[in-house]
Computed example of a mutant assay.
Amino acid sequence: MNSLIQLVGVNQDLLIYLAIDVSIAILLLGAMRFLSGLSAKVNSTDELAKEDNFAFGISVAGSILALGIVLTGAITGEAASSYAMEAIGMLAYGGYGLILIKIGRIIHDKVALQRLDKNALIIEKNLTIGIIDAAGAIATALVIRAVLVWVDGLDLSTFIAITSGFFVAQTVLVIVTRIREKQYAKNNQEDCLQEALSNGQLALAIRYSGQVISTALAVTAASYFLVYSPDTLVVNLIGWLVIGVVMTLLVALLTAIAKRIVLWGINLVEEVDQQHNIGVASIEMATSIAIALILTALMA
């Protein structure tokens, strides 16, 4: 065994650091399920096993995946100065990431989609809202992860930067939601997107999920252009906002072009908005996310 460890270049300290990170990660992921139940004021076990509430399950799954994404930003790959500092750093970043995910969901519920009673609709087993909730959590997590990777250190300035970058990104996500609402109303005789979602139009939820996740990916591209410095934090945050908006517009433009090619000859408004074609909506979602991933990879 010692020979094998030496062969792959892994020492005992690194294994201990790995064990600390993985243990804390599993603990936080397990806590997320029960926190989701507390947030919705329900017993998570009953909702999942007795009520067979798929909407709640999808919402919880989105939360767990979101936290996992955030934790990948908390794990830097560099060992801390001691085991205690490694545990503190992981708990601090992971715990704060969990809090920001919750805040992001509140912003998504109360500001972006303020006409929906998300918790009530999920308890009513509205699958559409469960998907929307999961997508919002994942989008928020992608932004938090990008900021965690962007900053350096574990001090007050770091957390100020993380919080500020988070709110900048949330602003962009809310703006995009408003634009999508207006676009939907224009294409559907002034109908309300949020009302359609609350009525369970699954195809719209799938397409909207792709839009918010691709927007989050676009915003994260700002981290590739800016160098973190506590002394120039305000300038950097303005840069995050400007670059985030520019990248979001670029992703939207390229996605629109790609959709016309990928879905050539298909009337998207008719198929998704009116006929609720989840197959076409899924292709729209995949195209949106694919373009955002490709563009951010090119910027890295």
Rank of each mutant, 00 (worst) to 15 (best):
N2I: 00
S3C: 04
I5Y: 11
L7I: 08
G9N: 08
V10Q: 12
V10A: 06
V10W: 13
N11C: 01
L14Y: 03
L15N: 14
L18Y: 11
L18H: 12
I24M: 09
I24F: 10
I26R: 15
G30P: 14
G30V: 03
R33G: 02
K41E: 00
V42Q: 07
S44A: 05
S44G: 04
T45Y: 02
E47F: 04
A49W: 02
F54D: 05
F54N: 05
A55Q: 11
A55F: 10
F56K: 15
G57E: 07
I58S: 13
V60T: 15
I64C: 12
L71K: 10
A74M: 07
A74G: 10
S81P: 05
M85I: 05
M85Y: 11
M85E: 08
A87K: 13
M90E: 05
A92G: 09
A92Q: 08
G95H: 08
G95L: 06
G97H: 04
I99T: 12
K102H: 04
I103V: 07
G104N: 01
R105N: 05
K110I: 00
V111S: 06
A112V: 09
L116S: 00
A120Y: 03
L121V: 01
I122P: 09
I123T: 05
T128P: 08
G130D: 04
G130N: 11
A137H: 07
I138N: 13
I138S: 11
I138A: 06
A139E: 04
T140G: 09
A141I: 01
I144V: 14
V147M: 13
V147R: 12
V147L: 09
L148F: 14
V149Q: 14
W150Y: 14
D152M: 12
G153T: 15
G153C: 12
D155C: 10
S157G: 12
T158Q: 10
S164H: 15
G165D: 01
F166Q: 09
F167N: 12
V168M: 03
V168C: 07
V172I: 07
V174F: 13
T177C: 10
R178I: 01
R180Q: 11
R180S: 10
E181K: 14
K182M: 05
Q183K: 12
A185K: 09
K186N: 12
N187L: 13
N187R: 15
C192V: 02
C192S: 04
Q194D: 00
A196G: 15
L197D: 00
S198L: 00
Q201G: 04
Q201D: 01
Q201I: 02
A203Y: 07
L204K: 07
Y208A: 10
S209N: 08
Q211Y: 08
V212N: 13
S214T: 06
S223P: 07
Y224Q: 08
F225D: 00
L226M: 00
Y228I: 02
D231F: 13
T232W: 01
L237F: 03
I238T: 00
W240Q: 00
W240E: 01
V245Y: 02
V246W: 00
V246A: 02
T248H: 04
V251C: 05
T255R: 03
I261W: 12
I261V: 15
I261D: 03
V262T: 00
I266R: 10
I266S: 03
N267R: 09
V269C: 13
E270D: 06
V272I: 06
V272P: 09
Q274K: 14
N277D: 02
N277P: 01
I278S: 08
I278G: 12
I278W: 14
I294H: 15
L295R: 07
T296K: 13
M299V: 10
A300F: 07
